[in-house]
């Protein structure tokens, strides 16, 4: 998601009317409730909900934890767009022309109460794609000797997809997930590709077989809303297209895993220092052996400036 980086520097309109879509599980009643709150510069939607809960209505229910976009608990729909409440500025969502804010629970999820949604199905789908590396060398897994080798280039193949915080915004925005209950969803498929692209993983036949029997990668129609709302810029849409391409290659029997990492060999002895060539000239009065034994102390002021 492209953020409005200067939203926090603007002063939001005050007071702001916040319309919250509420749900009472006992009576089954759904209604919109309006609250009027005073805002300050840098106030987020989560701050607004907290101020409502502390000052106006203590029965308002919502989930949050870290308040800084790391945990992914506070996903809500603000003005029709799935967003993290803690990362959305009031100045971004409400303007002086219309000082109003609509906050709803996440779409495509079951609502427990008010803004709290149930993630059981979401986590089951995540569990289905086996979110862990699969290896055949069990002895090495139980009693590891050294780490598996992986180059920075191989890391960058999946690093972006491993940033997922499981907030559920992508599933909330996906139009296919909205109408098909058997679709795994962008989050689970992205994680499937993340482990498929990892060179430390050996279970690619099992993964591709299971995904092929489930058929979920072919249900995606590239609406790309998942990438547009992702707060961590994980790019699920791109990952699902890559996964589908790999699955098609597997069906045509031309898919080959590029490389499977093995345990790095034990480190060899340190190489000897290359001696200086005879034609190299040294600055007069510098003793190299003395310098190696006592490295020069650089004052802190020089390091800072």
């Amino acid at each position: 998601m492209a953020f409005d980086l200067k939203a926090a520097t603007r002063r939001p309109p005050s007071p702001v009317r916040v319309f919250v879509k509420r749900y009472d599980p006992v009576s089954g009643r759904v209604w919109w409730q309006a609250y009027t709150i005073k805002t300050y510069k840098g106030m987020t939607v989560l701050d607004a909900l907290l101020s409502i809960k502390s000052d106006v209505d203590h029965t308002l229910t919502f989930r949050y934890s870290c308040r800084m976009g790391v945990c992914g608990s506070c996903g809500v729909v603000v003005n029709g767009t799935p967003k993290l409440a803690c990362q959305t500025q009031i100045a971004e969502a409400a303007s002086p022309a219309s000082p109003e804010l609509r906050v709803e629970p996440l779409y495509n999820f079951k609502v427990v109460r008010d803004l709290t949604t149930d993630f059981t199905e979401f986590f089951e789908k995540h569990r289905f794609i086996r979110p862990h590396t699969i290896r055949s060398d069990l002895i090495e897994r139980e009693k590891p000797t050294l780490e598996y080798s992986q180059s920075p280039g191989e890391l960058s193949e999946y690093y972006q997809y491993s940033l997922c915080i499981m907030c559920g915004l992508c599933d909330s925005a996906c139009p296919v997930y909205a109408s098909d209950t058997s679709f795994l969803g962008p989050q689970a498929l992205t994680q499937a590709y993340r482990y498929l692209a990892d060179t430390r993983d050996e279970g690619w036949i099992l993964r591709l077989k299971e995904l092929d029997s489930d058929g979920s990668p072919f249900k995606c129609h590239f609406a790309a809303s998942c990438s547009a709302v992702c707060p961590k810029s994980v790019d699920p849409a791109g990952a699902v297209q890559r996964l589908r391409s790999s699955l098609l290659k597997y069906k045509l029997r031309i898919y080959r895993k590029k490389k499977v990492s093995q345990v790095v060999p034990p480190m060899k002895e340190a190489k000897p220092i290359v001696p200086l060539p005879p034609e190299a000239t040294l600055i007069e009065g510098v003793d190299i052996k003395k310098l190696e034994e006592e490295p020069p102390q650089i004052p802190v002021e020089k390091l800072l400036y």
């Binding site: 089954g28 003005n79 629970p105 909205a178 209950t181 590239f222 609406a223 849409a237």
Partner: peptide, 27 residues
């Protein structure tokens, strides 16, 4: 209590105003 199913259904794949997503002509 019982949980409320907030699934959008076919509305999400027919109406472009059902979910407002910025910077997304693919949708």
């Amino acid at each position: 209590g019982r949980m409320l199913d907030n699934r959008m259904g076919l509305k999400a794949s027919v109406s472009s105003w059902a979910v407002r997503v910025p910077n997304n002509p693919e949708r």
